[in-house]
Amino acid sequence: MPLDAITFDLDDTLWHNGPVMAHAEPTHYQWLAEQIDAHRGADATPLAEAFPLEAYQSIRASLMARFPLSRGDHSWIRERAMRELLTEHGLSSDEAAQWAAAGFEQFMALRHEVALYPEVVPMFDAWARRYRLGIITNGNVDVRRLSLDHHFDVIILAGEMHASKPDPRPFLSAVAQLGTQPYRALHVGDNWEEDVMAAQRLGMHAVWIDAKDEGERELPPRVHRVTHVRELPEVVARLDEQTR
């Protein structure tokens, strides 16, 4: 039977995410440090001096170890890390919570400054008339901020489910909500284990976006390799022919 559903990863599948995070990570923390320093006054130790960016990152790593079920919930980890850091810096619990929320919103604004590959929107415009479409991501991008949500029937943030990919649960949830069966669904992603093998083990078809050009390898059944999302329509058309 032909395909009737396609699910997608986001980061490094629909856009190049490295530059986005390289900008967002230091920029939002610099913003937070400037706000806190102004709030506490000139006599207080600057936040970046007491807690450089590396300290903030270390607190996030510690939280992931302390709360393993929440390690994939990047939004919770980031905001909780800022709260703990600011409390240790001398702010009250209420102040720390307020400024952590503001710092997280600053990060999220920067996090969504993505440049979609130019082929993405026309591809979705065409496929929305033919397939049911979904998102399965370990990240915390809010697709509604990208004006893409109208293309998708299902959006799953796996980390918030406490079931980050390659856990099968987000895939099974997507397939069920899309009203299909794994063998009639295709998942597209850049991560070999989290996207490709996780979907393939459930009986789904999978397309590996080999964005890093790791090279040809022996592919298991139902797995296809491309180097860019622009190659997807040809693969999908071929799969539709093969599965009729």
Rank of each mutant, 00 (worst) to 15 (best):
M161T: 02
L186R: 10
S173P: 15
L178E: 13
K212H: 15
R169V: 10
D153I: 06
G179T: 06
R201W: 11
R145M: 12
I156A: 04
A158S: 07
H151T: 08
P168C: 02
S164M: 11
H187V: 00
E193L: 10
R201G: 11
D190C: 04
P168Y: 02
R201P: 06
P166C: 05
R169L: 12
D210V: 02
A206C: 06
L172M: 06
A174V: 01
W192N: 05
S173N: 15
W192Q: 06
M161F: 09
S164I: 09
P166K: 07
Q181N: 12
I156Y: 04
V188N: 05
L157Y: 04
D210H: 04
A199N: 02
S147Y: 12
K212N: 14
Q177K: 14
V154M: 02
H150F: 11
G159T: 05
H151N: 15
V196S: 03
H187K: 03
G189W: 10
P166I: 04
A176V: 05
S164Y: 09
A206D: 00
L202I: 02
W208H: 08
A199Y: 01
A176R: 11
A185Y: 14
A199D: 00
S147E: 11
V154G: 01
G203F: 03
I209P: 00
R184N: 13
H151E: 10
W192P: 06
M197V: 08
R144L: 13
M197T: 03
E160W: 13
Q177P: 08
R201D: 05
F171L: 05
S147D: 10
L148V: 04
E193G: 05
F152E: 03
H151D: 06
D195Y: 14
Q177R: 15
A176T: 07
A176K: 10
H187N: 00
L186Y: 12
M204Y: 04
